[in-house]
């Protein structure tokens, strides 16, 4: 019998790895992938809680998270392609046009 705590701990570890990816990596693509990893970690925790309380509501919420993630990736990657066309790089340190 595996406790819900184990799933939540795994989710926390994956979330922290995602945060490290967002802060450590420089390519906007890698930042995107790390964000997806964090969304997945949150989904895992939600599914674990759904199993804990025997309620499908959390699973429905995960379904919506997946929907929004798909939309976010489509728009985000389209934006990234546009930025790449203009700046010829995906380095987030160089995307500082709005910096004061």
């Amino acid at each position: 019998m595996v406790s819900t705590l184990m799933y939540v701990a795994l989710s926390a570890v994956l979330f922290v790895i995602g945060i490290l990816g967002v802060t450590l990596r420089k390519s906007a693509l890698m930042v995107f992938m790390s964000v997806e990893l964090m969304l997945n970690a949150a989904n895992l925790a939600l599914v674990a809680f759904a199993n804990q309380w025997k309620s499908v509501d959390a699973q429905v919420m995960v379904f919506f998270v997946i929907t929004v993630a798909a939309a976010e990736v489509a728009v985000g990657l389209a934006l990234l392609v546009m930025i790449f066309k203009r700046k010829k790089t995906t380095d987030i340190d160089l995307m500082n046009t709005l910096r004061g």
Binding site: R25, S27, M33, A70, L80, F84, T89, T90, D91
Partner: peptide, 21 residues
């Protein structure tokens, strides 16, 4: 879907190794 989209964009941009500095 999402991973295929990522792979497409990485290869489209040729941005496999964009982090040397």
């Amino acid at each position: 879907a999402i991973i295929v989209l990522f792979l497409f964009v990485v290869m489209l941009l040729g941005a496999e190794r964009d982090e040397d500095t």
